[in-house]
């Protein structure tokens, strides 16, 4: 099956700065894909090359198997972009701006009407339809950015920091909406500084640093491959034959405190408890620790995502 987005060996440099040094990303049709990386890692440059804002030095960028440079009319019509930076406009009300946006994608006003109404309603902007952008709050501006990205009903949606600067309630509402879009079969490429967002929403994530993808996989794969997880159990009477009873597990023991190293604590926990209770141990306390994508990110890049 032709991937929705295919990026191969993409390079880009600005004068003496190398922005991308061979990025490879493939995103399947209908996938929810997260692109994570610290500031300046190359996320926005990758997106901008894909959408025609920035010219690449080398490499291939394709949307549904068609080149984004030579076949730009097709590829751009498939993509809707919600940019991180807010657009400003001094002249026109919100609904008119949405009609303009639809028009740029070849959809005349009469055909765009239902879609514009649906998006204004869905994103809570009906009361502000005649307002100018400068009159909106940050959260409303963010919702407008998303409406603008969706007005031509694209198959691929690129969300560049879509919840940056919004309150928790709106963030959760937007997450629900993104899930709904994903369920409808949209391919979504998300860049975010909120690791939790990527962990909760994405089927797959790629971690990009210094212009290169350094790891790719499902959030679960990444945390289990690279994360550090474990279970700490305090028992009152460990006894002398504990070693034979726990021979199938990796653990360290310090008196009554036993620490098990496992990548999937939830899966290993029942077996461990079974083994301990069969041995006659009296369990006093159980603590599970599981690493997050943030830990994976930290271990791969040596820094937090917001650094």
């Amino acid at each position: 099956m032709t991937p929705a987005i295919s990026i191969r060996n993409l390079t880009k440099s600005y004068e003496d700065t190398i922005a991308l040094s061979g990025v490879d990303i493939t995103i399947g049709d209908g996938e929810f894909f997260g692109l994570l990386g610290p500031n300046g890692a190359g996320k926005t440059t990758t997106i901008n090359i894909l959408t025609g804002l920035v010219r690449k030095n080398e490499g291939d960028t394709e949307i549904f198997g068609r080149d984004t440079v030579t076949d730009y009319r097709f590829t751009r019509s498939q993509v809707g972009i919600s940019a991180q930076e807010f657009t400003q406009d001094w002249f026109f009300p919100l609904d008119r701006l949405l009609y303009f946006q639809a028009g740029y994608y070849g959809i005349p006003k009469e055909k765009a009407k239902d879609r514009v109404e649906e998006l204004l309603s869905k994103l809570g902007l009906v009361a502000k339809r005649k307002a100018r952008l400068r009159q909106l709050s940050g959260g409303m501006k963010r919702r407008f950015q998303i409406a603008k990205a969706l007005v031509h009903d694209p198959k691929i949606i690129i969300l560049d920091e879509p919840t940056a600067g919004v309150d928790v309630e709106l963030r959760h509402e937007l997450w629900d909406y993104f899930r709904e879009l994903h369920k409808k079969g949209k391919t979504i490429l998300l860049t975010t500084h909120y690791i939790e967002e990527a962990e909760m929403l994405c089927d797959k994530v790629a971690i990009i640093d210094k212009g290169r993808v350094i790891k790719e996989g499902t959030p679960k794969e990444l945390t289990s491959q690279l994360g550090k997880a474990g279970i700490t159990i305090n028992v009152s009477d460990p006894g002398e034959e504990l070693e034979s009873c726990l021979k199938n597990f990796t653990y360290t023991q310090e008196d009554g405190r036993i620490h098990f190293t496992t990548r999937e604590p939830e899966e290993a926990l029942p077996d461990i408890i079974n083994a301990l209770t069969r041995h006659g141990c009296h369990i006093q306390r159980v603590v599970t620790t599981k690493s997050s994508l943030e830990d994976v990110f930290l271990s791969l890049t040596g820094k937090g995502i917001n650094e």
Partner: peptide, 18 residues
């Protein structure tokens, strides 16, 4: 120039317009 400074130009450059 206004399009450039207000960040509206990407809307045109990312659309299927030549």
């Amino acid at each position: 120039l206004q399009m450039k400074l207000l960040g509206q130009l990407p809307d045109l450059l990312q659309a299927p317009l030549s």
